[in-house]
């Protein structure tokens, strides 16, 4: 919804064949399984999925903040000219907080409770820019103003626990933007907040994106947020991207049975009589330990057929760079929602 989708600009982030494998007692857990996507400057790219689909592992992998037991591999992982796979830990640390920012779900745990807001914000700036304290302080005040915090000089002297949840998330955003990153990865940035505050924070993110021109990867389970925020999106299920495309395409013409199922689960509000029953997806997410044959959604899918259980499911390309991973051809896939509406 935010910036125009500048298809021509070269991507700022290119991910090809990225996998994250975790060693667990019972074997190898394929948390992220050969995913591809790219994000262009100024774009909002949403990764949506339910718990355990691998979206958080994806964000941690991009920041190279994976737990020690995890193994990251990719055929290509390029951010702004840097190869994230071969970058040294030191160079990666230089990149984080500077050109690559991250906003976490819980602003209480991602801010250090024993330092003032000012201290923490200035620290980020001093570390990446060779500047004096005074300049850092001015920058921190400026950023707090940009995120809509009144009397920033006063707030800088306060500690995280003195602020409300919404304010803390604003501080977190201000801190992330201190060095004007090219890409911000936001992992469920509003899940811990009240609904009205959530809308305000999302609006703030959109406004700042226009102002600073950064790209945003927004990771969330909330389809409503995705629909309103995303330029492009990827739906993840069981470690794989099962559908991708522009927000308009995916929400108005979902092709993958999982995406269709998810959308049916949402309580609608259309000023009419409310639905008497919500759609739901039976079953649970399969175990990601060991080799997965065929489609991870097959056991929960209403349209499952023999081809779903064998081999890798190929990605079906659609116009405008959209794609979905299913054995069912597009025309047949699109015919389904209507068929379900009248059982």
């Amino acid at each position: 919804m935010a910036a125009p989708d500048n298809i021509d600009a070269p991507p700022i982030l290119t991910v090809e064949g990225m996998s994250v494998d975790l060693k667990v007692p019972s074997g190898m857990l394929h948390a992220v399984n050969k995913i591809d996507f790219s994000v262009r400057p100024g774009q909002t790219f949403c990764i949506v999925g339910e718990s355990g689909c691998g979206k958080t592992m994806t964000s941690l992998a991009l920041m190279r903040l994976l737990p020690r037991s995890a193994k990251l591999s990719a055929t290509r992982l390029n951010f702004d000219g840097h190869d994230l796979l071969s970058l040294s830990d030191h160079a990666m640390a230089e990149l984080r907080g500077d050109r690559l920012g991250m906003i976490f779900q819980d602003p209480m745990t991602s801010l250090n409770p024993v330092y003032t807001i000012g201290n923490q914000m200035e620290e980020v700036y001093l570390r990446h820019r060779k500047s004096g304290r005074r300049e850092a302080r001015e920058r921190a005040e400026f950023m707090l103003q940009r995120v809509g915090i009144m009397s920033p000089a006063l707030r800088l002297k306060q500690f995280p626990h003195q602020l409300s949840g919404g304010l803390r998330q604003r501080v977190m955003i201000a801190m992330t933007l201190m060095c004007e990153p090219r890409l911000v990865i936001a992992d469920e940035p509003t899940t811990a907040l009240d609904v009205t505050v959530q809308v305000q924070i999302l609006q703030l993110l959109t406004k700042l994106q226009e102002e600073f021109g950064m790209a945003i990867i927004l990771i969330t389970h909330n389809l409503g947020i995705v629909a309103r925020m995303a330029d492009r999106l990827a739906v993840m299920y069981a470690g794989k991207i099962v559908e991708t495309g522009s927000a308009l395409d995916v929400f108005t013409q979902p092709h993958h049975p999982y995406t269709q199922g998810l959308l049916r689960c949402m309580p609608t509000h259309d000023h009419g009589a409310p639905a008497t029953r919500l759609g739901s997806i039976p079953g649970i997410v399969p175990s990601l330990v060991g080799d997965i044959r065929g489609c991870g959604f097959a056991n929960r899918c209403d349209y499952v057929r023999d081809a779903c259980r064998t081999g890798d499911i190929a990605l079906r390309e659609l116009p405008d760079g959209a794609a979905y991973r299913c054995v069912i051809p597009p025309d047949e896939a699109l015919a389904r929602p209507a068929e379900l509406a009248t059982p």
């Binding site: 919804m1 809509g148 919404g166 609904v195 009205t196 959530q198 809308v199 305000q200 999302l202 609006q203 959109t206 909330n222 389809l223 409503g224 947020i225 995705v226 629909a227 309103r228 925020m229 995303a230 927000a247 308009l248 995916v250 929400f251 108005t252 959308l263 949402m266 609608t268 509000h269």
Partner: peptide, 19 residues
């Protein structure tokens, strides 16, 4: 207004709420 329905044609609602 804060209920975000999955409608990509709608942007973020403006709540005009004080912070």
């Amino acid at each position: 207004g804060s209920v975000l329905t999955p409608d990509p044609k709608l942007g973020l609602p403006d709540l005009h709420l004080g912070r």
